[in-house]
Simulated scan of single mutants.
Amino acid sequence: MLLQVLHIAQAALAGYGGQQSYNAIQNLQKYEETAQKMAKYSNEAERQLKKTRTTQAAGVVALALSLVASVLLAFRGRSMGFLVRTLASPFMAGCLFLAQQYMKDYWGGSKRVPLPKMGSYNDAQKQTEDLLQVLERLMFLWFATSVLCVLAGY
């Protein structure tokens, strides 16, 4: 029962993270056309655009995996077999760790200074910082379910 509650909490947190991610991507897309034009003339602008896209995609993929895995384990976990139930949690914790570190290297390494007259971009930065916190919390929740699986013998 406790394990099921934790998986439902993971699903809810992944859903919240998905909303943060969606909002950040929507705000970043407002600058997409300008960024693409700049990328034609600057290698650094092209690198920044690519990194922005790939880091946001990494967050989306990690959240989607976490959402699907947590829902499946919450409602179908008993029928999945001991090995799947035991390995799913550490696998998901590892995926979230990798996604979070990849995003943090670009978005959260040092606090970014808000840019003047770029309100939506600044909002996207804040939402991405919030997303990094969600990924970290999810990672620890998956770690907790992993420990519970081992201790309780699920």
Rank of each mutant, 00 (worst) to 15 (best):
L3P: 00
L3M: 09
Q4A: 11
Q4H: 08
I8N: 03
I8G: 01
I8K: 03
A9Y: 03
L13V: 06
G15K: 03
G17P: 01
G18F: 05
Q19K: 09
Q20Y: 13
Q20M: 14
Y22H: 10
A24R: 03
I25T: 10
I25V: 09
Q26D: 11
N27L: 10
N27C: 10
L28Y: 12
L28A: 07
K30E: 13
K30R: 01
Y31F: 12
T34N: 11
T34D: 15
A35Y: 04
A35R: 06
A35F: 06
Q36M: 01
K37S: 09
M38N: 07
M38G: 02
A39Y: 01
N43Y: 04
E44T: 15
E46L: 13
R47P: 02
L49T: 12
K51P: 03
K51H: 10
T52S: 08
T52W: 02
R53Y: 05
T55D: 00
T55Q: 05
A57V: 11
V60T: 15
L65D: 12
L65M: 13
S66H: 08
S66C: 14
L67R: 03
L67I: 05
L67K: 04
A69H: 01
A69Q: 07
S70Y: 07
S70W: 06
V71R: 15
F75Y: 10
R76W: 12
G77Q: 09
M80W: 12
G81Q: 02
F82Y: 14
F82K: 14
V84P: 00
T86L: 15
S89K: 10
M92L: 15
M92G: 03
A93S: 15
A93W: 09
A93N: 08
C95I: 12
Q100P: 01
Q101N: 12
D105R: 11
D105E: 11
W107F: 14
W107V: 07
G108C: 05
G108H: 03
G108I: 01
K111C: 04
V113Y: 00
V113D: 01
V113N: 02
P114C: 08
L115R: 05
P116Q: 10
P116T: 06
K117M: 14
Y121P: 00
Y121N: 01
N122G: 04
D123W: 10
D123G: 02
D123I: 08
Q125D: 08
Q125N: 11
K126D: 13
Q127E: 13
E129C: 00
E129Q: 07
D130G: 05
D130I: 05
L135K: 09
E136M: 09
E136L: 11
M139K: 15
M139F: 05
F140D: 05
F143W: 13
F143K: 10
T145V: 15
T145I: 08
S146T: 11
V147S: 11
C149H: 15
V150R: 01
V150Y: 07
A152R: 06
A152S: 13
A152L: 11
Y154P: 00
